[in-house]
Computed example of a mutant assay.
Amino acid sequence: MGVLNVTPDSFSDGGQLYRAGRADLDAILHRADAMVAAGASLLDIGGESTRPGAEPVTEAEELARVVPVVEALAGRVDAMLSVDSSTPAVMCAAADAGAHLINDVRALRRRGALEAAAASGLPVCLMHMQGSPETMQADPRYVDVVTDVEGFLHERVAACRAAGIDAGSILLDPGFGFGKTVAHNLALLAALPRLGALGHPLLVGLSRKSLIAKLLGRSVEERLPASLALAVLAAERGASIIRAHDVAETADALAMVAALAEAGAA
């Protein structure tokens, strides 16, 4: 899954595709084509930064950022379009514009989000986050992070099923870096097989995360080697989708994981 941040303030690439107060569609189309050519089978379009300390955007602003991009890419690129949003109106508009997946860091907990997602008929990805982007990294604490995240995801799956969303249309994301310390992130990475036992595909986003800076002291521009190692570790532990900024390099790394798995099954 390649990342397309249509924001001025995302932690890694904010502003690259959003200039002069609007989405730069030429740059977005170029980036999307390059990501698909490099091996992305999904493109994740986000109009609200959820980096630590980020402030929420208005519904109108998020709609203006996201919907034109979905409209521009739908039917043009050979990839599924994922919309990284917690906003019901954005979910509905994106579905109408041709999106294929709702990827919600708040796990459909905003008022009206669960109903909007169910009405859209699209698959959903439910992510765990402790707190909100403004405060999530202030002092995250758990009794047991794996048990707590597992229980949360189980509860949100049940809420989706009660709302009429098919079990086969639900993906799960442990939420690396969203209200987690380094120790929490590592514990969740080690426990991916346990989370996979919940019975839904796992989407993992570790690309360029601050975990790498805290362990290695690397700037955002220096985090590719560690991002690739984390992608491989996640894939080996059962992750079905790897969300990445560096698509070509990540696709190559995952191809090696797939080759080894295929050889072992032969």
Rank of each mutant, 00 (worst) to 15 (best):
G205N: 06
E222N: 11
H154N: 09
D9C: 07
G2C: 09
V66I: 12
A255N: 14
G2M: 06
F11L: 11
G205R: 06
D9T: 08
S12L: 07
G46Y: 07
A60R: 14
P201D: 04
G205I: 04
A239G: 07
Q137V: 09
R208T: 08
A248N: 11
V146R: 03
A95M: 09
G179M: 05
E59V: 15
T181H: 06
S207A: 10
H128Q: 06
R22D: 10
C160Y: 01
A97L: 09
A158N: 06
A119Q: 13
R76F: 10
V220P: 03
G177M: 07
G175W: 02
D144I: 02
A258M: 10
E61K: 08
A117E: 07
R243F: 04
F178P: 01
L211T: 12
G112A: 12
H128W: 04
V157D: 01
E262C: 13
A259I: 07
A162E: 14
V182W: 03
A167N: 04
P201C: 09
A258K: 14
L108N: 05
G179T: 11
A187Y: 02
I241S: 00
V204R: 00
V36Q: 05
A263H: 14
A163L: 03
A263I: 12
S82L: 06
V124Y: 02
V247M: 09
L172R: 03
S120Q: 10
S169A: 15
A89C: 12
A97W: 07
D246M: 03
A37V: 12
D84T: 10
E61F: 06
D144E: 12
E236D: 13
A265R: 15
M136K: 08
L228W: 04
C92T: 15
S82W: 05
R156L: 03
A263M: 14
L126W: 03
A231R: 05
A162N: 11
D44Q: 11
K180G: 02
P56M: 08
S85E: 01
M256C: 12
A118Y: 09
A74V: 08
A251R: 12
I165G: 05
V146I: 02
R111Y: 12
H128K: 00
L228Y: 10
L153D: 01
G14W: 05
G168M: 06
R31F: 01
T147F: 00
L192C: 01
G264E: 14
E134Q: 15
T58I: 10
V182G: 06
S207P: 10
G112E: 10
G151W: 02
R208K: 15
D96I: 07
R31M: 00
M127E: 02
P225I: 12
N103A: 07
S132P: 00
D13I: 09
R141P: 02
N103I: 09
D13P: 00
A20Y: 05
R31P: 02
I28Q: 03
V3Y: 01
Q16I: 01
L25F: 08
R110T: 08
S227A: 12
Q137T: 11
G15R: 07
T135N: 13
C125K: 00
L206Y: 08
L254W: 08
Q16M: 11
R237M: 02
R208D: 06
V232I: 14
V66T: 15
P174L: 04
A40D: 09
V157I: 14
H100D: 15
G238F: 00
